[in-house]
Amino acid sequence: MKDEPKMDNVATPKKTHGMLKPKRPTLSQRNDASPEKNEQKLAIRLEDFNAYYGEFQAIKNINLDIMARQVTAFIGPSGCGKSTLLKWINRMNDIVPSAWAKGSIRMGDLEILKKQTDVVSLRRRVGMVFQKPNPFPKSIFDNVAFGPRLHFKIGKQDLAALVEWSLRKAAVWDEVKDRLHKSALGLSGGQQQRLCIARAIATGPEVLLMDEPCSALDPASTARVEDLVYELREQYTIVMVTHNMQQASRCSDRTAFFFEGEIVEEGETEQLFTRPKHQKTEDYVSGKFG
């Protein structure tokens, strides 16, 4: 057993934060600047989707398009079904015995909800980052290499290259490069979460699902993960559940507002936050309930 490094050896994100933080364009700049905006491609389409836990209907008849290479945020009060929906997109609900669903979730030609759909290759294509950082009790390297070893025929050198690439992409390389073979549990919460993101992108997914990825992090780490989400959207389709409306407005392109299992309103983030069409949405984004 290796000694776990002490927490105080970890470079605190606060120090490096200022330097690494990219100058993010404002929302309106961004929308104008994105070249792909005009040729938006459909990544995932949900049609008449209903989800249940036993008798209880958690999601009622949802229709939604998720666009490729954009960040789509799901917001809404707790228990409104947004996490449930997220977990159906890569069939994580399969491990909940009472969960079942009907309707359709399509990704390209693949019907995700079909029984025959191979969840193994589905989850390779649709990665997931969880609410709480959940690194395996293994070394940092083995954490990132976990997915590639599962899914790819890959040589030692290629694997090392892939691990470095993933860690760089997740903006955590500089902090961990000297301790790749030490336990991942010795990292700080924010580093762990970025490690989990690195682990998710190492398998080369098309879609990244993030279930409140910052809810367990301190503000500085949150900012770093948000920056990362913004960077990653160049390459991945990101669906993010969040409780934090500022977060949704800061880093998403489109937002869907959930209430009691239904989508009340869905649209471009800026429009939804500044000119909501529904009274409920306005009440929620202005903090009247939730």
């Binding site: 599962l150 899914h151 470095e164």
Partner: peptide
């Protein structure tokens, strides 16, 4: 896996 690394498509098992 440096900054110029382009992620190849590894053969999938």
């Amino acid at each position: 896996g440096g900054p110029n690394f382009v992620r190849p498509n590894f053969p999938v098992k």
